[in-house]
Computed example of a mutant assay.
Amino acid sequence: MDQIATALVWLDYAAVAVFGATGALAAARRQHDIVTFGFFAAVTGVGGGTLRDLLLGAPVFWIAKPGYLAACLAAALAVWIVGPGPGRAKVLLWLDAVGLSAYCIVGAAKASALGAPPLTAVVMGVLTACLGGVIRDVLAHEPSVLLRREIYVTCAMLGAGLFVILQTFGVAGLPAGLAGAALAFGVRAGAILWDWSLPGFPGRRSD
C-alpha cells in the first residue's frame, strides 16, 4: 500500500510538471515574458487539481506542499532555456497527452481515497485532467479543447473509468492506474495521429 501511495505522489508531481510545461509552451507560442511563462505553467499545472480539492472539501494540495508550484516553475524555466525550435506545437500535443493520461488517474484515485462514489471519482478524474488545459487555452487565446471535435475529454473519462472499475473489482491500485493511464494515452494518441473524433449532432445549423 505504501508503494502505491508513493507511486501516486510521484505520478502527481510528474503530471503537474508536464502540464506546467504545456502552459509554458503555450506562452512561448505567444512570445510572452518569463513571468508569464511561470504564471501559465502554474495555472495549467495546478488548476484542475485545485478545483477537484475544493469540490471534494479536501485541503488544496499545493497549499501545504509548494513543491507542486516549484515543479511548474521548473518546467517553465526549462521551456524558456530550451528556447524556440521547430515542432513546438507537436511537443505541446504529446506532452498534454501524457499529462492528461496521468492526471485522470491521480484525480480519480484521490477522490476514491476520500470516499467518493465511483461515478464521482470518474468525474473528478476528468476534471483534474482537463481543466488545466481549458484554462491554458483561454489564457493563450487558443480554441478550447472542449470546443474541438477531436477526442480529448473522452480519453480522460475512459482512463478514469477503467481505473475505477478495476478498483471496484479488487485490482490493486498500481496496475489499475497503469491500465487506465495506458488506455487514456492510447486513445489520445489515436486522436492525434489519425484524427479520431466523435460524431457531431446531425442536422443543419440555424442562422
Score class of each variant (00 low, 15 high):
D137E: 12
G45D: 07
A172G: 11
I63R: 04
A111M: 03
R148S: 10
P202V: 09
G107P: 03
Y68W: 04
Q167M: 07
W196Q: 14
Y68D: 06
L92T: 10
A191E: 12
R88K: 07
L8A: 15
A70K: 04
G23T: 11
F169E: 11
G133P: 01
W196K: 08
I63Q: 10
A42N: 08
Q3R: 13
C104D: 03
C155F: 00
V60P: 01
P143I: 07
R188L: 01
A24S: 09
G83P: 04
A176Q: 06
L162N: 01
C130K: 00
G159N: 03
D12Q: 12
Y68C: 06
D53E: 09
S197C: 15
P143Q: 09
P86E: 03
K65R: 12
P199F: 11
F163R: 09
G38Q: 06
R188W: 00
G125N: 01
L100Q: 00
D195R: 12
A58E: 10
G125T: 08
G107T: 04
G83T: 06
F201E: 14
I4R: 14
G203L: 11
G67T: 04
V153T: 06
L54V: 11
G45Y: 03
A116D: 08
A75S: 13
M124Y: 10
H141C: 08
A108C: 06
L92D: 02
L100M: 07
P84W: 03
V60D: 01
I192M: 15
D2K: 14
G173V: 07
V164E: 02
I151N: 04
G107F: 00
F61V: 11
L127Q: 04
A64N: 09
F185H: 14
S206L: 15
S197G: 15
L198H: 15
F163G: 02
L51I: 12
L11Q: 12
C104W: 01
G48H: 05
L8D: 13
T44A: 11
G45V: 06
T36R: 05
L8M: 15
L166E: 12
F169Q: 14
C130E: 01
Q167E: 11
A111W: 01
A140W: 07
G20C: 10
T120R: 05
F19T: 02
C130H: 00
H141F: 08
L73Y: 07
G133E: 03
R29E: 15
A58I: 08
F39P: 03
G45H: 04
F40R: 05
